[in-house]
Structure formats: C-alpha cells, structure tokens
C-alpha cells in the first residue's frame, strides 16, 4: 500500500471517528448510560450483574413505553402531558372487579382504546382548534385524575387480572416478559417512524409546519395519529405499571409525565426534531431508571433524584441546541 493511500485511509478513519462522536453527542442517552455504568462499576459493582440489569430493564419498561409515545407528538412539535391522567384512569379501572374477574381482552383492550380516545380528543383541540398543546393536555390530565378519583371513590384497591400481572412480572427463563412487550412495541414504533409515510411526514411537519402544509402533507391527520399513538402507548405503559403493583392506587403515573419528557430529550429528540429515534428514547428511559437505582443504592432519596432529573432535562436540551448551532 502506498503512503498516500495510507494517509487517505487515515483521514477517512479520522472523519468516520468524528462523525461517530458527533452521532454519540446527538443522543445524550448513550454517553450518559456509559458514564452511569462506569460509575456503577466502581461504586456499586453489584449493580453490574446481569440479573440486576435485567431487573432494571424490567423496571424501565413503563417509562420506556410512555416515552416512545411521548416522542411522537414531540417530533411533530407538540407535547402530551395527559399521559399521567391516562395511566391513573387505566390503573383504577383495571383494579375494578369487572375487569379483574372478567375476560382478559377487556383488561388489554380498554387501556389501549381509552388512550386512543384521549389522544384523539387532545389532537382535535390541538390540531383543529389550534389551542396550546401544553395547556390542553394539562387540562385533560387534571380532568382524568378527577375521573380516576371518581372511579375509585377515593379509596382504590382491589386486584387485577392475573394475565396483567404475568405480563408485568413474568419471566421466560431469566428474561422478563415485559421486556419482550417493550421490544415488540419499540420495533413497531421504530419501523413506523423510519419507513412509513406517517413517520416521514411527521418529521417534516416538526421541522416546519408551514412547509409541510404547503408541501401538501396531511399535517393535521399526522398530529391526530401522533397523539392517538401517544395515548395508546400510555395505555400500554399503564397495563405494565398496574401489573407490577397489582392493585389500584391514587394518581399512579404522575411521576411518569416529566420522566417521559426527560427520557425523550435524553434520547436526542426535542420539539420538532426526532434525531435520536426510538432506540435513543429507550436508552434514555433505561439511563433514567438505572440512575434512580444507582442513587437509591448510594442512599440518595427522591429529592436528589428530582434535582438530577431536572438537571438532565435542561442539560440534554441545551446540548441539542448547542449541536444545532
């Protein structure tokens, strides 16, 4: 090989490394995850065992599902803060005797259908009435939490369908069933974003609503679908979450709203720009869950976790803007 060819190859490798680095910065979740694992390996080596990592994976499933859902409206420059309400209603509903003792399809179909209806309602107001997405979905969340209190009469409890519990806590060998649910859901969402007209058009709409509209895209229909899917994913997250705790509880899912936004931003997606894809979002959810475990293991309580979570949202958002500039 001649010297020139070697130099050229060296340059190519350097360029490729640079591109890789830039790619890594594009999705803060990956460097964050590596950093967390490195810290854990030093201070809490027991967290690094495979069984424990699988437990973290299982724990992260509801957040990951909610975050995949959340990423869709965010790519289209909208937001869904109503997922907490959806989860609260689904949780107390699945704990009703009718659902716990009824046929299993009810416990599976209701959450998804309910999420879709809420998403449709949100999108109607956001896309057609053109009201502020933040305020609309906040209002819907308040309403739904009220509804969940009504359903449970303020005193939730009861039990859920055994299949729902199995879905959330069951294992195939060492592998959690919930992890399988997440993989299937993430694959479907990823395929949709990368390959379907919906995915391409949603990215375009997020990049510029006016240009998408003038380009003849069905901008409002996309927003409707994005919000419905966000609701459906929230419903799915609610099934798994309800399966974990096995009973009805007050305002389950309130924590998941902010955490889902954090996971999305960590995964490289901000308002109008889905650079990180579904994998980034899942990595973001896993990183956040791992962080919570790490901090708990170090004796840091919820306050410290909230502070770190807040810093992560701002940090990841700042990083995204910095990359654009």
């Amino acid at each position: 090989m001649t010297r020139a060819a070697t130099a050229e190859q060296g340059q190519k490798i350097r360029a490729r490394t640079l591109a890789l680095l830039r790619g890594a910065m594009a999705i803060p979740a990956w460097p964050a995850l590596i950093l967390l694992l490195a810290i854990a390996a030093v201070v809490q080596p027991r967290l690094m065992s495979l069984p424990f990592l699988l437990i973290v994976l299982r724990q992260s499933v509801p957040l990951a599902l909610a975050a995949i859902g959340q990423s869709l409206p965010m790519i289209g420059r909208s937001i869904d803060l109503s997922i907490g309400g959806v989860i609260a209603v689904v949780n107390v509903t699945l704990a009703l005797p009718v659902f716990a003792g009824g046929p299993v399809w009810m416990s599976l179909a209701f959450p998804l259908a309910f999420g879709a209806v809420v998403g449709l309602f949100n999108a109607g107001l956001i896309a057609f009435v053109r009201a502020s997405a933040v305020v609309v979905t906040l209002g819907v969340s308040v309403m739904l939490v009220g509804v969940s209190y009504l359903i449970s009469g303020g005193a939730p409890g009861g039990s859920v369908h055994p299949f729902v519990r199995e879905l959330a806590t069951g294992r195939w060998g060492m592998l959690p069933v919930a992890g399988g649910v997440l993989v299937v859901a993430a694959l479907m969402a990823g395929l949709m974003l990368r390959r379907s007209t919906f995915g391409h058009a949603l990215h375009a709409t997020g990049a510029s609503y006016s240009a998408a509209w003038l380009g003849g895209l069905a901008v409002r229909k996309e927003l409707v679908v994005a919000h419905m899917l966000s609701g459906i994913f929230a419903g799915l997250a609610a099934i798994i979450l309800t399966g974990y705790i096995g009973t009805g509880t007050l305002n389950l899912g309130a924590d998941l709203v902010m955490a889902s936004v954090a996971a999305v931003v960590l995964g490289g997606t901000t308002f109008g720009l889905g650079a990180g894809g579904v994998l980034g979002v899942v990595a973001g959810a896993f990183a956040l869950t791992f962080l919570a475990n790490l901090m708990t293991g170090l004796g840091a309580g919820k306050p410290a976790q909230l502070i770190v979570q807040g810093a992560i949202i701002a940090g990841a958002a700042a990083l995204a803007r910095w990359r654009e500039a």
Partner: peptide
C-alpha cells in the same frame, strides 16, 4: 423544557 426542568429540580 427549561421551566419543566427547574420545576422538577426545585421540587427536589
């Protein structure tokens, strides 16, 4: 996003 993040952190 910014005030969401301070909302979370300040709550902590």
């Amino acid at each position: 996003l910014m005030t969401l993040s301070t909302m979370t952190a300040v709550q902590g």
